[in-house]
Simulated assay, not measured.
Amino acid sequence: MTAFHALHVPGTPLLLPNAWEFGFAAFLAAQGFPAIGTTSLGVSAVVGLPDGAPSTRDATVALARCLRPVDALVSVDIADGFSADPGEVAALAVELAEAGAAGVNLEDGRPGGGLAEVRAQSVLIAAIKAAVPGLFVNARTDTHWLAADPPPVAAAVDRARAYADAGADGVFVPGLAEPAAVEELVAAVDLPVNLLFLPGRTTFAGLAELGVARVSLGSLPYRMALGAALDTVHAVVAGKPLPLTPPSYGDVVKLLPEA
């Protein structure tokens, strides 16, 4: 078991904040967070490209390399792998592992709201594990993500079991929040379960009580940062107090590598 895998403890979950650039990742590590994830939305927005588009592959790898000096384990969000070709997805995993990544997050959601065929997705997972056995593959299934009429939990369970058989190390079901549904998933899947924190719908403590092993923040920190920046601009224009007290210039400089 890798050090990253060992952080996934059912009932005592890993809180995985998601970063999109070096400064925030280094700030999290300085606060004692043992692991961080990246967010495909943040990475894509920084370079002005659609979320998870194949063209964001290079930016994703560049961020992983940039984060190598950060004193924390890093799991990289690779969306759908940026390719349907198992060889290309495996090559990406090798690149990320060489850049220091401890894990990847691979999703089965596809453009337009559809899902990848289970067998095809399983082949991608198996290809990654064959190429980099020690890389933690968090298999995300989008059965319940943005679903107007969510299916039974069994839909996620079936995919999670197939992905486990392919070699996945964890299963991620964003959108799942109802306690009974979470309990059903945790009981049915023999892998660490990862859920997305959903403001107003879930709490970290509540998910821990349900046996979840990892709680991700996804794009929330990035979106909160955008909101805080905009509130700061409005406060300056209106002559009001700033919405929060930021780290000082010096605090940020201390986080950066020396020349």
Score class of each variant (00 low, 15 high):
2 T>R: 09
6 A>T: 05
10 P>R: 05
10 P>Y: 04
11 G>D: 08
12 T>I: 06
12 T>Q: 14
15 L>E: 08
16 L>E: 03
19 A>Q: 08
20 W>Y: 12
21 E>Q: 01
21 E>C: 00
22 F>G: 01
22 F>P: 00
23 G>I: 12
26 A>W: 09
27 F>E: 07
32 G>Y: 09
33 F>Q: 04
38 T>L: 03
41 L>N: 14
45 A>P: 01
52 G>L: 02
53 A>T: 05
53 A>R: 10
54 P>F: 02
54 P>D: 02
56 T>Q: 12
59 A>I: 11
59 A>K: 13
60 T>A: 12
67 L>Y: 06
73 L>D: 08
74 V>A: 10
76 V>T: 01
78 I>Q: 08
79 A>V: 12
82 F>Q: 07
84 A>W: 01
84 A>Q: 05
89 V>C: 00
89 V>A: 01
92 L>Y: 10
92 L>H: 12
95 E>T: 14
95 E>R: 14
97 A>W: 08
100 G>R: 06
101 A>W: 11
102 A>W: 01
103 G>N: 09
103 G>D: 12
105 N>G: 04
108 D>P: 08
109 G>R: 13
111 P>M: 07
117 E>C: 01
121 Q>R: 07
121 Q>Y: 06
123 V>C: 06
132 V>I: 09
133 P>A: 04
134 G>P: 01
135 L>D: 01
135 L>H: 00
136 F>G: 00
140 R>D: 13
140 R>W: 13
141 T>A: 04
144 H>P: 01
158 D>M: 07
162 A>Q: 08
163 Y>P: 07
164 A>I: 05
168 A>M: 04
171 V>C: 07
173 V>N: 08
180 A>H: 00
183 E>Y: 06
183 E>Q: 15
183 E>C: 09
187 A>D: 14
190 D>V: 02
193 V>D: 03
194 N>S: 11
198 L>M: 15
199 P>A: 15
199 P>R: 15
204 F>P: 00
206 G>K: 02
206 G>P: 05
210 L>P: 13
212 V>F: 11
215 V>I: 15
220 L>Q: 11
221 P>C: 13
223 R>F: 03
225 A>K: 05
225 A>W: 10
225 A>N: 09
225 A>E: 09
227 G>E: 12
228 A>L: 15
233 V>I: 10
233 V>P: 04
236 V>Y: 05
239 G>A: 14
240 K>E: 13
241 P>I: 11
244 L>A: 14
247 P>K: 11
248 S>V: 03
248 S>P: 01
249 Y>M: 10
252 V>D: 03
252 V>R: 06
257 P>I: 11
258 E>T: 11
258 E>M: 06
